[in-house]
Nucleic acid binder design. Structure first.
Lengths: 163, 163
DNA sequence: TATTGTTATACTCTATAACTATA
DNA sequence: TATAGTTATAGAGTATAACAATA
């Protein structure tokens, strides 16, 4: 029988190192958890759709916010303006996103998904949600809900520069 | 009176975009929360100590696991072997880490912090914990504890490749 | 043969500066 | 003057391949 090696609650998930002090640093635990979710993301979406995490998020936000601007995306994702331009260039080049000039403000542009883009992002989200549910099945439905909400609460801190 | 604009529970922390579907993707919420903790990290530790997040974590893990190996660190942080070498090179160059060859296994090396390194990491962790506590004061003590434990639980998924 | 650690190197991603066209 | 978006480019970070030394 494959006896599972017992883990200390303050041990690193991999590498079996002690992390007593570090254990209470939120940024560290976020990074460790992100390693796990990134694995799931790459398997379910990243590799099969050849889509980087940022690209997926950009597509999702455009999908749920038709005719939003690049500036909004840049702020939401904490990505610089030149880089948003680059990512949208790529996505437009793949025929997933459409740019149209705004009529009311000719500097700005409206972003929309093409049918192809919308189909892709819908499939991707479906796979991701199922993949996460399966990978993190050792968390209860309630625990996952609480986790999501607490993360959201942490994220809301952002706008304030100094607390 | 500065009336705070009311936010929808499924809106992005910045950029005011809707994220209804995306809201339940764990990887996305982790990324959003990480933007907030990174801001705190940079202000409290990154900028004043000129220390990248990985560097801080490496120092912390060496501190709590004296005479651990580089391979263990690489695995714990999900960083490739060549890159761990590079980071330790930098930290050793700054006089924060010491490398010594293992006697029992002459391939391996033991990693230790210098006094300077130990002092630095202790100060950094102190500032970080206080900074996070202040920045995320809108979460109760209990909520922060729960968040940490749930993140740890997510991170524990890592070793299993599929399932 | 497998593992620890290293070097060399290419690739991806990100940040900064400078520019345009609008407002 | 400020903002939306772009171009050009440098820098940081990461990954892969190939290697030496040891197990």
């Amino acid at each position: 029988m494959p006896q599972k090696k017992p883990t200390r609650p303050d041990a690193t998930p991999a590498g079996r190192l002690v992390e007593a002090r570090l254990h209470h640093v939120m940024g560290y635990q976020l990074a460790q958890a992100t390693i796990a979710t990134t694995l799931v993301y790459m398997r379910e979406v990243g590799d099969p759709f050849e889509l980087r995490p940022v690209e997926y998020t950009i597509l999702s936000l455009i999908n749920e916010n038709p005719d939003g601007s690049a500036a909004q995306l840049a702020q939401a994702l904490s990505v610089t303006a030149p880089n948003i331009t680059m990512w949208i260039d790529k996505l437009e080049g793949r025929g997933l996103v459409q740019r149209t000039r705004s009529e009311t403000d000719k500097r700005a542009q409206h972003l929309r998904l093409t049918d192809k883009g919308a189909t892709l992002v819908t499939q991707a989200t479906e796979k991701l949600l199922l993949g996460e549910r399966e990978a993190f099945a050792h968390l209860s439905e309630g625990e996952r809900t609480i986790l999501i909400e607490l993360l959201h609460k942490v994220a809301l801190t952002r706008p304030a520069r100094k607390g």
